[in-house]
């Protein structure tokens, strides 16, 4: 009988996690945009001036990273002043930790001086992201 409850419990937990992640997928959090932080060198090297660089953090084990790459590359190709760069942090956990990134894909939108404009967890939604980036594009 306990097994039945354990099964029901597991199904409920899976359902809750699934709903939570679906809701959070592609959600944009705007950054405090305060002083320029100590950006790790591998990230700083990717920044392109002028405009905004979308730095996508990925790992070898991340299947949705590929989908994020397709969305972001396409968006960058069609938008002036927007560049996409992917950084594989599989062997750079310190970089991810110093940026406060827990999951991949996470995409940071950075200006040329290293100021973080916003970040997106999961596979970004094209139109929502573009709308959020508009004020920061040249």
């Amino acid at each position: 009988m306990t097994g039945v409850w354990a099964l029901l419990g597991a199904l409920a937990v899976a359902g809750a996690i699934g709903v939570l992640l679906k809701v959070r997928e592609g959600r944009i959090s705007s950054s405090k945009a305060s002083a320029v932080p100590d950006l790790p060198a591998p990230v700083r090297d990717l920044l392109v001036a002028p405009g905004v660089t979308l730095v996508q953090l990925s790992t070898t084990f991340c299947a949705p990273c590929r989908h994020a790459k397709v969305v972001l590359r396409d968006l960058a190709d069609r938008t002036d002043g927007l560049t996409h760069a992917e950084l594989d942090v599989t062997n750079l956990p310190d970089v991810a930790a110093s940026l406060g990134v827990m999951r991949t894909p996470t995409t940071l939108a950075l200006t040329a001086d290293g100021t973080e404009v916003l970040r997106v967890g999961g596979v970004p939604k094209r139109d929502t992201l573009l709308a959020a980036l508009r004020p920061h594009l040249p």
Binding site: A14, I17, G18, L21, K22, T59, F61, C62, A63, P64, V89, T90, P93, A96, A97, V101, M102, R103, T104
Partner: peptide, 12 residues
């Protein structure tokens, strides 16, 4: 159900 791999996304 969702094609989601928790362990992979949380690898870091």
């Amino acid at each position: 159900a969702l094609g989601l791999c928790l362990g992979c996304e949380m690898y870091l």
